[in-house]
Design a protein around this nucleic acid. Structure first.
Lengths: 136, 136
DNA sequence: CTTGACTCCGTACTTGACTACGGAATTACC
DNA sequence: GGTAATTCCGTAGTCAAGTACGGAGTCAAG
C-alpha cells in the first residue's frame, strides 16, 4: 500500500524520526505518542505530525528534560484548559530560564577559553565551575 | 577533629554539596572527583573546592550533559594542554549553542502561551513542537 | 574507655530510558 | 500465490546513574 509521507508504516516512521521501532512503542506505552487506529486486519500508519512530535521529544530530552517532563510539555502542545496550562507553563518557564542562565554562563566560559587558546599556546584552564557559581 | 569548612568528613561534605554519600563515592569511581589522601588510620576530608565541583556536576547534568560529557568539561576546568582543550571546547561550545537556541525557542513559546492565557480564559494550545522545528 | 555515630569499601539492588527477542499475523514483491 | 520482509505485542535484557546494605575500622562525647 502507499508509503506516502502521511501513511508511513512504523519502520519508516521510526527511521524518519531518527529513533528505533522499539522506542516508538516505548513512547506509546508512556503516553507520549498516540497509537494510530489499526484498521481491522491491517497495520498502523504514521504521519509527519508524529515525526515532529518525536523530534520534539528528543530535543527536549537533550535540554535535560525527563520523559515525564516532556509528557507535561506535550499536554501544553495538545491544548489543555487554560488554568492548568498556566500552572505547568509557569513552572516550566522558570525552569527553562534557569537553564538558559547556566547555559549562557557556560557559553561565555567556553568561548573565553577558546579566545585565550587561540592567542597563546601552552596550557590554559577554563573557569567553568566558577562560571556557574551561584547556580542551583 | 575539626569539622571546619575545608576539613569536612564525607557525610557533611555530601550534605553541603546536596548529594548522598554513596553518590560521592560513585563520582570518585567515575573519576569526576578525586579521593583526598587518607592519613594512615584516618578518614578522608573534603573542602569547598570539592563542594563547588559537585555543584557544577549537578548543574551540567540538568543542562542535559551526561557524566561522560561532564568529565570532559572538567578536564577543561582542570587545565589541559591547549590543543586538546581547544578541540573539546569547540565541540562542546557548538553543543551548548545548539541547546541555547532550542531553549530560547522554548522560552518564547512558553511565555507566549502565558501571555495568551492571561488575557483570555478558555483553552489554549502552545506551539512548542513547531517552535523547535528545524532542531536537531 | 565505652558506646553510638560515622567512615570505608565491596557488592547488590533500583529507576529511567531504552533495546532485543520471538512467534504469530500482515504486507510487498516477483 | 509463495516467500521474504514487516508489523504486532508481550516479555526480558541492557546501560547510565545512582541507592542500599553490611561488616570492619575510626571518631567523638560523656
Amino acid at each position: 500500500m502507499q508509503a506516502e509521507p502521511d501513511h508511513l508504516p512504523i519502520g519508516r516512521f521510526a527511521k524518519a524520526a531518527g529513533i528505533g521501532v522499539e522506542a516508538v512503542r516505548f513512547y506509546q506505552r508512556k503516553g507520549l505518542l498516540g497509537e494510530p487506529e489499526r484498521p481491522p486486519g491491517g497495520i498502523r500508519r504514521y504521519g509527519q505530525a508524529d515525526v515532529a512530535r518525536v523530534r520534539f521529544i528528543k530535543a527536549a530530552q537533550r535540554l535535560g528534560f525527563s520523559l515525564d517532563d516532556v509528557a507535561q510539555l506535550l499536554t501544553l502542545e495538545d491544548g489543555t484548559h487554560c488554568s492548568e496550562a498556566a500552572e505547568f507553563a509557569t513552572r516550566h518557564l522558570a525552569d527553562v530560564r534557569a537553564r538558559l542562565r547556566d547555559l549562557k554562563r557556560m557559553e561565555a566560559a567556553l568561548s573565553q577559553l577558546l579566545a585565550h587558546c587561540d592567542s597563546q599556546h601552552g596550557s590554559v584552564a577554563c573557569p567553568l565551575i566558577a562560571s556557574l557559581h551561584g547556580a542551583r
